[in-house]
Design a protein around this nucleic acid. Structure first.
Lengths: 127, 127
DNA sequence: CGGAATCCGCCGCGATACTG
DNA sequence: CAGTATCGCGGCGGATTCCG
């Protein structure tokens, strides 16, 4: 993080040097965080994940898993049985990421009602 | 958070009951987190924010500020001077949100290089 | 079973022009 | 100064079909 002074308080960069851009944006999409939490309790296979992450399409599950694998948060292991079995699991990096992410989600859970009330009040005043 | 058991490990809902959907998605967009951190050091006015949050367009600054205001993270105060002055500041809720969010960003900063290496290695193997 | 490929609608976001 | 209005593109993400 930058150490702001009173004269120049510009913050963060709008490119790949910015940790917000590189992490918050990555897991801030529609499915990443849900999948990460789905793997907290242990490895799971593709078809099971598809059932547990309710509402996700096959395409997005594949794509998001690929992205998470590329970041290094998730590992992919193929068991050449019949039928084939593929298991996904959190890597060491993924497990470490989940901790601060869980703090954020936990906060969200605690303040969920307050936020929903804020939205309602805002929408009513705007009409 | 749910307390998973071994038989049924389904997690989170794919609707507005899900805290991930309601908070992580909201601040996981392109500009929200950047704006929140830009306000950590104190209130700031529209034009100053536009300069400090490098690369943001007028339209997205307005829109994101409205969204953050609706959630209750940011307050908007109009000073009817000439020329007019509008100041944005974190609310109490916004200040509380920044704490776990900062933990996540700080983690991102610490592991930024590792993640970039993971991406590079992944892309090289895929070709 | 675990994908890949294709098609396509929606909308997040930027650029530009105009306003009180 | 602090917005609003309009237009348009690119890409996210869903539905469907096909494959080893």
């Amino acid at each position: 993080m930058t150490t702001p002074n009173n004269n120049e308080r510009r913050i963060f960069f709008n490119d790949d040097k910015c940790p917000i851009r590189n992490v918050v944006l990555q897991i801030g999409d529609k499915w990443s965080a849900l999948i990460l939490f789905a793997l907290v309790d242990g490895a799971d296979r593709f078809s099971s994940l598809k059932k547990r992450v309710v509402g996700i399409s096959q395409r997005m599950l594949t794509q998001t898993l690929r992205d998470l694998e590329r970041e290094g948060y998730v590992s992919r292991t193929v068991y050449p049985e019949v039928p084939i079995r593929v298991e996904y699991a959190l890597t060491e990096l993924g497990r470490k990421l989940v901790k601060p992410l869980y703090q954020l989600v936990s906060w969200a859970d605690d303040h969920h009602d307050e936020i929903k009330q804020n939205r309602k009040a805002y929408d009513e005043n705007v009409d």
